[in-house]
Write a protein that binds this DNA or RNA. Structure first.
Lengths: 225, 225
DNA sequence: CCAATAATTTAGGACACACTAAAACGAGTT
DNA sequence: AACTCGTTTTAGTGTGTCCTAAATTATTGG
């Protein structure tokens, strides 16, 4: 197989992948990478140069970075490991929705592909992780569902929550406490302008409305119905 | 808790622990540590100096190294992680006796204590790992069974295999193939002098004798009966 | 079109951990 | 008591990854 990647390299690839996925395939900016990895931009420039030389990504100075097919494949392997781990830890070892992330984050760099496949098998080859994110396949393809951020949905829409960001355990705890999870049905009652709060009604029968802020609404991906 | 230890530091502590355990509490020589970790003695000297400064061990130059109580506790935590992992991977994920070691070796530095305790719980708080080695407790104590190497046993003795070294998958495969595993009953039929081969008879009923070499006999720990 | 601002890169260093080559040490033999 | 040999340590380097401070480039409001 391809030479083993260091922990740092894997983190960079995963970060770049997730940034360019969020932005729909655009270049990832040095700054964004630095913020996501909690490093200084200067450090990122250095590593990016190295990764560009090794063919994992293309770097247009001052413009940003994009993964090559090889780099994307490596990134997807890490993402697969992470998501299978989250699913396994929750399903088989009683981890909670809100605190698997950190454990998976460390383990994803240490587990072998063999172990991941055993976990995937034990889980019945899941297609989505517990936060609703699609799990890349063994051979490096990933489903790209056409979900929309709840923040973008027009008032009056009836939607179903499909995916939730997994990287902030506080947030996850809160979402769980109000019942906003994948598969929850939501009616968008009102949406204030200028990125204002959104009023939603949960489930089919609930009568109580909830108001959620923009930040929260941005990390909930929903399907229109 | 105590500041997290690096991967290298954990490896050193574990190595030193296992050397001084093998030798019954004696000092661990720089050379032995280097060989076990596949490093040069010079590198070991450097790291040992650092660990001595941080209070994990005592270093008498040119004489060797011994873990302090703090260092031993840290070492035992790593050993516990390793052994619980081996047990879990075999029991729950279908790993084989002969190839868990490497996987556990990498994971032991990445898993949290929380995860280890969940695994231990799922396994029913095992006291021994699949190779028969005692698992240190959460609070850092370890059983020290009075086992003897098969190589040391007098001819005519009837013994029971209790523990097998886990660090060579070839060897483990072979031992499994001839049925030499923890709990196997063995009659020592003959023992050639000058570290010569040992003839054994397996089980209570078997009639076929086996001849095994010194290296093999040295890594089988048995209980006299 | 230019200056201010924000993003990015360069330059120079630090830290952890490994290595090689050479010097220092200690123990057993003569 | 001196020599020899294996062990251990010192000295000097290299690699990977990060940092700060300063220089550079792109963008945008005037």
């Amino acid at each position: 197989m391809t030479a083993a990647l260091s922990r740092s390299v894997e983190d960079y690839l995963k970060a770049i992948f997730s940034i360019s996925e969020r932005s729909g395939g655009a270049h990832a900016a040095t700054n964004e990478i630095a913020e996501l990895l909690a490093l200084t931009p200067a450090s990122v420039t250095g590593m990016v140069k190295k990764l560009a030389e090794s063919g994992m990504l293309e770097h247009e100075p001052y413009r940003g970075v994009r993964l090559t097919p090889g780099g994307e494949k490596a990134a997807l392997a890490v993402v697969r490991r992470h998501r299978i781990l989250e699913a396994y830890l929750i399903t088989k070892l009683g981890y909670d929705w809100s605190n698997v992330h950190d454990e998976a984050e460390r383990l994803e760099h240490a587990v072998s592909d063999d172990l991941i496949e055993r976990m995937a098998f034990a889980l019945g080859e899941p297609k989505y992780d517990p936060h609703g994110a699609p799990i890349p396949t063994r051979d490096g393809t990933i489903e790209r569902p056409a979900y929309v951020a709840l923040a973008e949905v027009a008032p009056g829409s009836r939607v179903k929550v499909r995916q939730v960001s997994d990287d902030d355990s506080e947030r996850l705890r809160y979402l769980k406490s109000i019942g906003l999870m994948p598969m929850t049905e939501v009616l968008v009652v009102d949406k204030q302008p200028f990125d204002g709060p959104i009023t939603i009604r949960l489930g089919a029968t609930a009568t109580v409305d909830r108001v959620i802020g923009k930040e929260l609404a941005a990390c909930l991906l929903v399907e229109l119905r």
